[in-house]
Structure formats: structure tokens, C-alpha cells
Design a protein around this nucleic acid. Structure first.
Lengths: 323, 323
DNA sequence: TGGTTTTCCGAAACCGGTTTCGGCAACAAA
DNA sequence: TTTGTTGCCGAAACCGGTTTCGGAAAACCA
């Protein structure tokens, strides 16, 4: 008859407010995530379908993060949490586990640590599989010297994607040259720095796989600067599927991540968990989808020829160095 | 002593849940807003400072929007609402006004309607002032034929920005040519269509002001296609200050909007309103900041010369028309 | 038909706070 | 000293639901 009980009135008796929360870190250098809206749409829709709501908060630092989580728990503004961007050593996980509050991770955690008594639930997209495929794709094009630019090692995904790169090399029986592996590129600018470092090597890679699209986009001005044609002189692959990939020239080949579905699954699984399901049973690994564009292809030059071309152009431009 | 009352227990007596909500439309074609996180950071921070929280929800259609709002009101999940992207005829405003629920607009509403008994509170950034300045800037560069590409007329800001354009022309005593005014460009692709229409005129504009950066970015491939050098053959200005402006070449001159402060002010003013302050007193108009880059400058060609150049290149390319 | 069990339904207790109310002590004025 | 006023503090009522409990009615069985 159109009657809806006041949610806080039921909460007082049931102990559940029928709300999940997510705290996002607002200080990150690569925080301009165009997919936040998609993610929220997925999560909100899933929550709405079960008559739950979604609370959102932001934190400016690690300390602030725990404070915000603590406040939400103590005031009981939420019954569970979605933790995005899991880190290798994640303080949020430790904190919430201790408080015995339900939570779910977007991404896995504890890279390299024994998974003893691990009872966390998570949803993740297998970046390692995608990067392994990226290497396989480059190998099938004929590349034999392939570089990798990773993201910040504090994030768990950074290690997984590097592992995917190494697995790809191993599957193709190619040696892993430590010189070809760079880490810590989160922004366009950092991506540019690492790309430049790789291309200025004595034996540069003819293809580079980037852990994120943003870092890969940083490679574009570097290639212009070095007089290289992306997709022919150097092949580039990214990961994330940000919209910009299709607007740069040549279009960036990347792996597209379905953020909306991620939000949807995370919200659904978290609510299941608050209803008593075992966290360990609530885990899901999904795949990213290859979006082939024009930034990669068969190598036109060998590593040696590439080095010579770069050397030539660098010497030539020495006068007007624009950093 | 570290004690915090359960928020829903106080809510049952006080009738207030100390939460504000925002419902975002997830179906929009230009929904990939990189500033959502900044906006949320501002709003959440302001809310947190007053010990409030922020609830978020998404809606897929206008009908869905009212349903979601209704649910949040009836279950009393929020004490007030932030309504982003106000439309000329905004159903949300009518609905919430009728329900006597506090709300605040991000943007004004009711363009062209008499503001009788208008008791809404809002925060907005004066797009019309920015666009007027844009026209003034182009005039001072020496442009006399300036085009305008507006956004979807259902949004209030679209009309305001067009008015700003007209005011700018009037201030410079330039005639307003209806042929130079286009509307309805929300995406890059739509921006490209309108830009092409303007540049293919018999007497094309030597400068174009776009109501949004996204539409302005659509002009870039069109200029490449027509063989025009942005910033010299044609001047371009955008509005919004999306990060991509600085990565395209030449960099897009635009007006930067402080989304974080917008979120902060909106949340603060909304909470004041729920505490009893009169909505009509809670209004604020802010300004966008000019970010000058290389996409605009003195006209190198007259409109006639520009038309000739475009004609020439179009004829030349007729064989390999790439749409 | 009588006794027992099941079902149904309304009343009461409860959840954890806020707010009101009343009683008592302290203080000021006469 | 008595009376009136103020201040303080603990008890009780209340908010709007959910859950429990008990009694009456209905159904079942011998």
C-alpha cells in the first residue's frame, strides 16, 4: 500500500542499516578515473536491486582513511565496505579484519605472502592474464625484445602484471632482461620518463607493454620527440581501456576493463557476505578484453636499427633539446 | 571517552539521519566525467567536517531518477539532496519541492522563466561570464567572425553560455550571425559535426568558442582533416578544464572549473539548509579560471581566405574522403 | 465430545538513543 | 528562619520499527 518503513527505525532493532560504503583515496596522483561513474553505477544498481544504499567517503591520507573507516563503523553508517585499489600491505584490511566488519576487496592483496588463514573475499580482473596475452601478441608479431613499464609497487596489481609479463616471455622462451623492466609509472609524465629510459638503452625494446594506459599515453610525446612512429618503429600496449586510447593517434591497443560489472559484482558479493555467507567463498576473477588498435604491429626495425635511429635523431636534435 | 552514538538510533528520535544524497544519471552520453572524484572529495570532506555522510545513487532514466529519489526520501536514507546538472525543466526539482525535502542545485534552472516565488538554493559557476570573456579575448586578438557551439539545450547551462557568447559579441559591437551558432554538441563526435558545419560555411568563423571541452576536442580531427592549424588558421576555446586539454596538441585554451570546491560548497550549504536556513539565502555564483594555451591567437587569415583554403583542401582530398 | 496441539493475532517488550519531566538540593530574598 | 526560585540530575516517556510472548481460536486426534 505504498508503505515503506524508515530504514533507521528498522536498523535500531536489526542492527543492520542496509548500506555499504566505499572510501576512496583522494590524494592519489592518478585519481582522475573516468570510470568512477561506471563503477558507482554498477555498485549502486546492484545495491538498489536488493534495497540497499551506497555510502561514499573520501580520505586524504592513510591515517585519515582509518579514521574515516572507524567513524563509519562506530556510527554504524554502513554494514560493509568495498576497498578499492588494494595494496600489498593493506592497512585497511588489517583494520577491518580486527574490527570484524565485513569487507570485500577490488583487487587481491598480500602479494608474495603465504595465504594462510586468508578469509577475505574479493573481486578482481586478471591483469596478469591480459599482460601475458599482450606479450604473446607481440611475440606472434615477431618481437623478441619486449619491455615492461609497471605501476607503483605498493599496489598489488603492479606485481601481478609484471608476473604476467614474465610468464609471457617464458611461454615464448624469451629471456627476461632486467634492463627492460621498469617500475613506478602512475602518471603520463612518469610513463614518459620510463619509456624514454627504455628507448635510450643501447639495445632498446622494439615493443613496450605498459601496466596502465595512462603510462602508455606518456610514451606518445616521447616517441614524437625521438622521431619514432608508434605501431611501426615501436609497438605499444596499455591496460585499462580509458576512453582516451581511441582518440590518440595512432589508437592505443589496450585491454578494456568492465568497471560497471566490477562494481555490480562487488556490491552483490559484499551484501551476501553481510547476510552471513563465508567470505572465502565469495571470490571472483574476471578477464579484461583486448581492444586492438594501431599502436602495435610487426617490428619494422630490429633493436639495433632502432637504437641507431634514436641515436641519430637524438644527436640531430641536441641543439633544441626540449626535455 | 571514544564513545560515538549509533547514528540510526539518534535518527529515530531526531528525525535526521545526518546524511546527504546525490543521484547521478548514468545514462548520459558524456558521463565519463574525470572530475567526479574531485567533486565527491569536496562534498565528502565538507560533510565529514560536520559529521555527516554522503550517500550516492545512480539512475538510468528520468523515471528511474524519481523512483530512486522517492525511495531515499521514504526510507529516509538522506536529509537532503544535491542535484547535479540542472535542466531547464527539471522534474527532480518539481518532485522534491512537492515533497518538501531540502535540496540544492549544482547549476541554476528555469532558464527564461519568471523567477516568481523561487525558493531554491544553488551553487553555480558562471559559464556565461567565462564565455563572454572568451569572446572578448578573441576580439582582442582581432577576430571579428566568431562561432559558437553549444551543448544540449535541455541543460540550463547551455542557454546561459550561449547568452554569454551573445553578450560578448554585443560588448564588442559585433553582429550575431545565426549561422555561426550551433547547438546540441555533448560528445567529441557531436562537437566534430558542428565544427565541420561551421568551417564549411561560405564565410566560416576564424574562431570558435565551444560550450564544453569535450566538444572542442572534437574539432581537432576536423581541423586535421581540413588541413587547418589550430591556434593559427582557426582559434578554439573550450570550457570545463578537463585534464586532456593539456595533452592535445596544440594545448586547448579553456576555463577551469574547481569541482572540489563546488562539491564542498554544495554540501555545506545543503546541510545549512537542513538545519533550517532559508533556501533562498543559500546561493552562490563562482567563476571559472582562464587557462590560456596554444589553441587560440591572432587570426592569420580572414574568413574569406580561410574559406578558400578549406575549399582547396576539400577539393584536393575529394578522392580519399575519410568522412 | 473432550483433550491436545497447532495456528493466528494482538499486546508487550525491546532496540539505543533523545527529550521531557519531576524531585531534590542549593541559593537568594524577605 | 521561611519561602520562592533556580539548577542539577536521574527517571521515565518517546521515537518507529522488530521480535517475542501469551492467550484465544481453530484444527486435529482418540
Amino acid at each position: 500500500m505504498g508503505y515503506r518503513p524508515l530504514s533507521h527505525a528498522q536498523a535500531i532493532r536489526t542492527g543492520r542499516v542496509r548500506a555499504i560504503a566505499m572510501v576512496i583515496n583522494s590524494e592519489e596522483p592518478d585519481r582522475h578515473n573516468p570510470f568512477l561513474q561506471d563503477f558507482l553505477a554498477g555498485a549502486c544498481e546492484a545495491a538498489s536491486a536488493l534495497d540497499w544504499t551506497m555510502t561514499i567517503s573520501t580520505a586524504k591520507s592513510e591515517k585519515d582513511m582509518l579514521e574515516v573507516l572507524g567513524r563509519l563503523v562506530e556510527e554504524r553508517k554502513a554494514d560493509g565496505f568495498i576497498l578499492p585499489r588494494t595494496e600489498v600491505n593493506d592497512v585497511r584490511v588489517k583494520y577491518l579484519r580486527e574490527l570484524k566488519v565485513p569487507f570485500i576487496l577490488y583487487g587481491r592483496t598480500g602479494y608474495g605472502q603465504a595465504q594462510t588463514q586468508d578469509d577475505t573475499s574479493w573481486f578482481d580482473i586478471s591483469g596478469e592474464t591480459a599482460i601475458r596475452k599482450a606479450v604473446g601478441r607481440l611475440v606472434s608479431f615477431g618481437h623478441t625484445r619486449i619491455g615492461f613499464v609497471g605501476s607503483d609497487p605498493k599496489f598489488n596489481y603492479s606485481h601481478l602484471r609484471r608476473d604476467g609479463y614474465l610468464e609471457g616471455l617464458e611461454a615464448a622462451a624469451l629471456p627476461a632482461d632486467p634492463k627492460l623492466i621498469r617500475e613506478g609509472a602512475r602518471t603520463r609524465e612518469e610513463g614518459a620518463i620510463e619509456a624514454r629510459a627504455l628507448l635510450r638503452l643501447k639495445r632498446p625494446p622494439t615493443a613496450i607493454v605498459f601496466a596502465t594506459d595512462l603510462a602508455a599515453l606518456g610514451c606518445y610525446p616521447v616517441c614524437t620527440e625521438l622521431g619514432l612512429h608508434i605501431g611501426r618503429d615501436v609497438s605499444i600496449l596499455g591496460y585499462d581501456g580509458i576512453p582516451e586510447c581511441q582518440y590518440v593517434s595512432p589508437g592505443l591497443t589496450t585491454f578494456s576493463v568492465d568497471s560497471q560489472r566490477a562494481g555490480e559484482r562487488l556490491a552483490t558479493m559484499l551484501i551476501q557476505q553481510t547476510r552471513g555467507e563465508a567470505p572465502a567463498g565469495l571470490r571472483e576473477l574476471s578477464e579484461a578484453e583486448l581492444i586492438a588498435r594501431e599502436s602495435d604491429g610487426p617490428p619494422r626495425l630490429t633493436s639495433e636499427q632502432l637504437a641507431k635511429k634514436i641515436q641519430l635523431l637524438t644527436d640531430h636534435n641536441r641543439g633544441g633539446n626540449r626535455l
